[in-house]
Design a protein around this nucleic acid. Structure first.
Lengths: 340, 340
DNA sequence: ATGAAAGCGCTAACAC
DNA sequence: GTGTTAGCGCTTTCAT
């Protein structure tokens, strides 16, 4: 694929030794080289279109300038903006992201992380954490640098970047209570995810604080299908049906909307629904989904920033960065039936 | 990040020279080594958890086992399934995908491709082709191996993997004509994209064949915003409004739906709409979108397969693989107003 | 301030 | 069938 100029070509053209070229072209070492030499070398490199061979450099420095990004599934609309955010920050620092999907299961995660480590990534951004995940404690013990994204790692002391989940849920509950609702249901994601736990807890304390009934239900996946099945059960089974549902995420909320439609129920007339994440097209659902907007792109950028700082300083941090979220009120929430 | 065993460690443990280890562990050369030696080496490698250093190997073989994937924007829901398809095939062959977004502009594409090439990718899968794109002819001249995905490269003789666009559009038109429509409008994407061209041409010949009116309109981006503006113009401006719109893709169709809603018009009662791609959640729009399903994941897999074959054989192919598409009829199409 | 030399871990060409 | 040797392109001592 086209023989590229090497450092020796640059050295020859600039009339210096290749070691000097290396020093001149590296930020960290350029002050070891004479002012004019640096200029001459730069010019030569430029004119040849020289770009250091990443593999040769990586072999020598034992760093690949590559970051592994572990996510459950790229086709889940929460992740593309996160990935873009990560890439955008990494790029500005000369790093590249390597993606790996776990398909939301532990062996998938193990394989994904192993393959990234085999590729000699310099660090990991992990958006697929499970509580008590053995892989995570393993790699932590092995000294792998990583940052958790969105979900934390249970007991493993990696830093975390996430949204202010509790605040988002509290705002949702407050909004529903203001509309007149007194009987809410939270359809939570799997308890093995830290976000599910955080949101459930926040839901219960928000309900307690408002003095309204707040029931809890758990589904085994953060998918529309799981949400749909849960809503089916609620509609069919619960004698005193809640007047509003706070879903664990937008996909679950979407499933609820589908179920309502299938049962001939109107949202929000018969039941209000709130989602979480404000994923793309949430505004185009029927009805447009009221949901909590999470700064996905910023979360990605922040995670990348945190990781690179750890790599720069060599110091593992245990910081927890929580980014503000905001409630976006759309058509899926309204007054409860008895107030109409 | 944890000192990993090298090939010398394996050699020592197996009691052979490292060159023998290399031969024993590589598919292509293992038959040059004695049966039992291979076994002994494998065992040693296994027990040490040895994985070849990709950078050392790449430096030596001048190949990175890495493929660059160039797409307009990962947050466009068409691409995640394509990327998953690519990754899935690459992974099975030991390759890794490196993503780069162009944000749908030429300098972005130039930068994206350059940065992938600087990373020494072995080949490129390009989903962001523009007609007459100078970057593409440049890299073709430079001997870069690549496969075009979805959109072709204008004059540049790279192979192409895409859906049977013409068939999809023909099916859409036939469906509308069967419903009684006689006056259709195609809102096409930018003419600089080969897909826009192909779909426009297919639209016109399908209309001609059916003997119905088929007007054409072009927007400058494949986005909901562009579709919305176009629909605004149609609703406000066209004296004899068409009864159905065939959109260049689902996002444009979505924009049309938004515009209709804003104008108090009903879909499909007042106007039928057909999309293209069957992106995720198209079924959840209001109304659920009738659209052409494109096998995105398979397209990704096929593109990867084609590229790896080129790398294997060293022969540049100019194959064009067209995957079958299918019309998915949902709620956004119905009989035209005058037939109700 | 710069050059010389060594070596990162691997594979390929050449012996035997 | 296996060992020896060389070298991919780079950075980093160590000299000077």
């Amino acid at each position: 694929m086209g023989a590229r100029p090497t450092i020796d070509d640059v050295a020859r053209l600039a009339g210096v030794h290749k070691a000097t070229v290396s020093r001149a072209l590296n930020q960290r070492t350029e002050r070891l080289v004479g002012r004019d030499t640096v200029l001459r070398v730069r010019e030569a490199a430029e004119s040849l279109g020289y770009v250091p061979n990443v593999m040769a450099r990586g072999l020598r420095t034992d760093s690949s300038m590559t970051i592994g990004v572990v996510i459950p599934d790229l086709t889940n609309p929460l992740f593309p903006p996160i990935v873009r955010g990560i890439e955008s920050h990494l790029q500005s620092r000369g790093y590249t992201a390597l993606l790996a999907n776990t398909d939301e299961n532990e062996s998938g995660e193990r394989v994904a992380i192993a393959s990234l480590l085999d590729r000699r990534v310099d660090g990991l951004i992990i958006g697929s954490g499970h509580r008590g995940d053995p892989t995570l404690s393993e790699i932590h013990r092995a000294g792998v640098r990583a940052v958790m994204l969105n979900r934390d790692a249970g007991g493993v002391p990696y830093p975390l970047v996430s949204g202010e989940d509790a605040q988002g849920i509290a705002a949702s509950v407050r909004h529903l209570v203001e509309l007149g609702h007194r009987d809410l249901l939270h359809i939570a994601g799997p308890a093995s995810l830290s976000t599910s736990e955080a949101r459930s807890v926040a839901f219960q304390s928000a309900c307690a604080e408002a003095g309204v009934r707040g029931r809890l239900m758990e589904v085994n996946a953060l998918t529309a299908e799981a949400g749909e099945r849960a809503a089916d059960a609620v509609i069919a089974g619960l004698p005193d049906r809640p007047t509003a549902i706070v879903a664990g995420n937008d996909l679950i909320a979407l499933g609820v909307l589908r179920s309502l439609r299938r049962h001939g129920l109107e949202c929000p007339t018969d039941l209000s629904v709130v989602g979480f994440n404000d994923m793309v097209f949430a505004e185009d659902f029927h009805p447009p989904l009221t949901t909590v907007r999470v700064p996905a792109r910023s979360m990605g950028e922040e995670a990348a920033r945190l990781l690179l700082r750890m790599l720069d300083t060599g110091e593992p941090t245990q910081e927890r960065v929580m980014l503000p979220v905001s409630l976006v009120v759309r058509g899926s929430t309204g007054a409860p039936p008895r107030l109409r």
